[in-house]
């Protein structure tokens, strides 16, 4: 029981529940299917990005370039489709964006796994380079005339309608993308040797090398996978927002990493769960979208998120320290 209480997941879940109770008390309309579907929609892009960031943290690295990867993949794909094949079917648009994301991720991988450079420095560098390259050479116009199939995709829904109570809801197919990413990542992390190797790498690189884990290949995979997820998140973002905006997404990277850390992943590597990450995302999305409902002005958003990070990650760390002091 105490073990359960000491976990970040429990803490974050408790804060979410608390937030919802307060929100429901101050606005009876908060607890509605509409809110839920809005929050779910808002969680898709952030959630996919967060799962990628979590994988990097587990492997003992950090990636701050994924937003630049996402926006580059999205914008290049959109522009390429418009120029070469405006009628490109959406599965191909998605595949192209994922591929471009993976390719940009591979550039990170080459520097990190190949040359053994520090992950933060490499990705800080590529964050600037990717975005600068995009704005300089590809374009800086917001494109609202998307390829028809991208618009088509954004209209495809799993369910949409109005509840008997009159609440409007809309569950887009992009939600299935998040579900797929969760399932695939969970499978890789828990059921494959590759996944165990990623955890092992985060636990101790030297030990991993000694028992014969191919450290470079594992690292390379991580950055390519994160890139691919970013490519997917990027094209979803463009399609759901019905606009290809080369200035969007970048700047979100710290919020995403904050969500992952709130969910229990550690910056030193080796720790992180998908459940925790999703809870972290849910909390951040709640704060970003519904802070006003509980009576806190939206200008306090970043303060609130910062305070949550300090509390959510500081408290378990402080508890662990005290436990260690008692044991010692």
């Amino acid at each position: 029981m105490t073990a359960l209480l000491a976990r970040n997941e429990t803490l974050v879940a408790a804060v979410i529940v608390l937030f919802c109770i307060v929100a429901a008390l101050s606005d009876p309309n908060f607890l509605s299917v509409t809110t839920l579907s809005d929050l779910l929609r808002a969680s898709i892009v952030l959630g996919i990005l967060a799962i990628g960031a979590m994988l990097v943290l587990i492997s003992g690295g950090i990636d701050v370039s994924f937003t630049a990867v996402a926006v580059s993949a999205m914008y290049i794909t959109t522009k390429a489709a418009l120029i070469f094949w405006p009628g490109m079917p959406w599965p191909m648009i998605f595949a192209l964006s994922i591929l471009i994301g993976a390719g940009l991720g591979a550039i990170n991988g080459v520097f990190i796994a190949g040359f053994g450079l520090p992950t933060l420095i490499v990705t800080l560098g590529t964050l600037s380079v990717f975005r600068g390259f995009l704005l300089t050479f590809v374009g800086s116009d917001r494109i609202s005339a998307l390829p028809p199939d991208m618009r088509e995709f954004s209209r495809m829904v799993i369910a949409r309608g109005t509840t008997p109570g009159g609440d409007f809801y809309n569950l887009p197919w992009s939600l299935a993308a998040l579900a797929g990413v969760i399932a695939l990542t969970a499978f890789i992390l828990h059921k494959t040797m590759l996944g165990r190797s990623i955890f092992a790498l985060g636990g101790s690189v030297e030990s991993a090398r000694r028992i014969g884990i191919d450290v470079r290949r594992t690292q390379f995979f991580v950055y390519v996978y994160v890139g691919a997820l970013a490519g997917l998140a990027g094209i979803l973002h463009g399609s759901m927002g019905r606009m290809a905006d080369p200035f969007s997404l970048v700047g979100l990277e710290l919020s995403v990493i904050a969500a992952v850390v709130l969910g229990g992943a550690r910056l030193v590597g080796g720790y992180g769960t998908i459940t925790g990450t999703l809870l972290g995302v849910a909390l951040i999305v709640l704060v970003q979208n519904s802070l006003v409902v509980v009576g806190i002005p939206s200008t306090w958003q970043s303060v609130t998120i910062g305070a949550l990070i300090l509390l959510g990650t500081g408290l378990p760390a402080w508890q662990a320290k005290r436990a260690a002091a008692r044991a010692g």
Partner: peptide
């Protein structure tokens, strides 16, 4: 050269599986 973040069972079995 063990992994602090993994369980006893994983630590023992991982190298063999590799």
């Amino acid at each position: 050269s063990l992994f602090p973040n993994l369980t006893v069972a994983e630590n023992i079995a991982l190298a063999r599986d590799l």
